[in-house]
Design a binder for these strands. Structure first.
Lengths: 200, 200, 200, 200
DNA sequence: TATGAATGAGTCTTCATTCAT
DNA sequence: AATGAATGAAGACTCATTCAT
């Protein structure tokens, strides 16, 4: 019989579905997709195994829903980045403070970040979702930059590089702890590179 | 009795071990760690299932050995980067040509690259290995840069950022294909950023 | 507390029960007992899953009720067989035309026929029901034959064999399509055998 | 990975495979296909669950192999039917004694017979196998009849009907126990019908 | 009466690893 | 050293049936 995945209407059911997403996503992010099984997810969500398959096609579906629900906060806090108007000459410090916030965010969801990154690289569907999101975020930022009178020329490319640099830096700082690298200096260079991009 | 992992001395045995590493790593890179089983690996390597466990502790061990053996070529082609002496003012074009080589390399081992990246992000041991390697590569590059009279100041940090930028760009170009991004322009900006880093 | 199976009194309830029987029997006949689930049945019948268990003990019960309601048409069209009086010497052609009608009937409910036959052979309760029915039909036919002055001697046995032969032939024609068998000839022989039975 | 069903070469392995076929077929015939699980089969065969899937694609495969191995004895004992030469006028008694043997055979494998019949009617693959076999048996019998100088005309059709009648009769006698039927009489009529077929 | 959400035991199947030879 | 047969735990998913509302 054709699967009938029910979209819950009743409040209690919606809550239950959300519980499953939350529990599933959390466990998967914590322990990895392959190290998390449906029974555990159900247990953590406080429901029976069976009900899981009434709301989700399969385990992957749970993860995917979780990603859609929580992924933005984990991967694209940059969407909240808001530079001051171009002429204020405050870009450097705006970016600077954003980066430190970004690092804080990251630290909280460190493991999740890693597991999801793993999925992005091993599963095409996740990859596609992620890349589309990335594009969308670039566009959002572009709009904000334009509103603040940043010059339009090659703006997408600049923003894309900026996003990459921020990511690179934060990832470095949080995970690598390369002892021979001075992260304050590195931050300084990254900031400077970003500023250079938009300068003139 | 604890099974002993034998380190093969005889030539034939060594060849056999290498065959397993090659087969295992190749299959895992192609199809993913969880989609590859030991039987397949043994089959591909032309050995019996049993023998695998005489040379390797477990499946993961095979992957790890493969990573050690082939990982550098896939992840750190940058180790072969050799800038011309600082004063030649040829840095821009050296980087430029390096990047296009790098992209070629990447394209060949695209799937492997993705699968390994997934492992890096889901397995601590792989992650550790990778980060150490990254550090080592940074150091190598540092040495080369110094030999070519690049100023020592903050050199590690600069190189690290440069590596990140190159990686970022290449990954973008090979996988994302974001339609709204003009990759020539992006490349140009990345190159400029790198040059700026080392510039006086 | 023992769940009580209610026998519906109200018209609406009776209609609902009939809907379930119809839907359930139809689906089971179409897709097989084990490939049909209660949810589907309820859906097809336009009722809730829960209500099913207020009218039926279990899934099997639905099938059984369906069999009782629709089984005769599928399995015993022969009950409508009516030979002309013994002395008319028209027995051959009566049987002949009956057989062709029978085949038409069969063709319509081909799948149902197969699925039910499967149940007859795998479930004792179905088997018992079926055999009783068969006996009953034999008796009915016997009565009709007697009314038309067929000699009473061994009539039950003759009719039973006749029923078997008709079934055999029709099943052959509809399902087997054995290429080396000429079905017109086979029909002719079967007809002759039947006529012989009642002859003299 | 593409399933690799091993065809066992070594004697012990072949024995094991046979054990599984025997155990599986027996259990399925006894309790029904859907009431028999792999664990039981493995247990009965004295092997582990895993090994089952090294020799068989799935549960159905086990059944099918069993059917091929044991099915003939259960369904087509008639293949051993050997009439005396046509002119001996001994056909009646040959058939008679064959039928009583046939009934003995059937009684032994009564349940198996029923379960397999169920499968024939609910599974296309089983049905196909069965029908091909039936055709083959018809051909074999035809050959034997010809060797004994039975007239060739419409021989296939006659034999087919004979097979059907024998089956019909035996099935009646073994399972139905219709109290109003005198089976000796019925047998007599069936025998006579068969003789008539080949007469003249 | 009726709903449909919830249960959870049960099933097939896979596969890393071990073991008899 | 080598084989490949064997193990059996574990996991994803289904579905008849019950229950809270």
């Amino acid at each position: 019989m054709e699967e009938m995945i029910r979209e819950p209407r009743q409040k209690r059911a919606i809550e239950k579905k959300n519980k499953i997403i939350e529990a599933g996503f959390q466990l998967i992010c914590q322990n990895g997709y392959y190290n998390t099984n449906t029974k555990e997810i159900a247990l953590e969500a406080g429901v029976s195994t069976g009900i899981v398959y009434q709301y989700f096609k399969d385990k992957f579906d749970i993860f995917m829903d979780g990603l859609k629900k929580y992924g933005d906060d984990i991967f694209f806090p940059i969407i909240h980045f808001k530079p001051e108007p171009y002429d204020n000459n405050n870009f450097y410090s705006t970016v600077q403070s954003f980066i430190s916030d970004y690092i804080q965010e990251h630290k909280i969801s460190q493991v999740a970040h890693e597991e999801i990154t793993a999925m992005i690289h091993s599963n095409q569907e996740v990859a596609n979702y992620f890349y589309e999101k990335e594009l969308y975020v670039t566009d959002c930022l572009k709009k904000v930059f334009l509103e603040n009178h940043f010059p339009e020329e090659h703006l997408s490319e600049k923003i894309h590089i900026m996003m990459g640099l921020v990511d690179l830096l934060c990832h470095e700082i949080i995970y690598h702890k390369h002892s021979s690298i001075n992260y304050d200096i590195m931050t300084e260079y990254v900031l400077q590179s970003i500023v250079n991009l938009f300068e003139k």
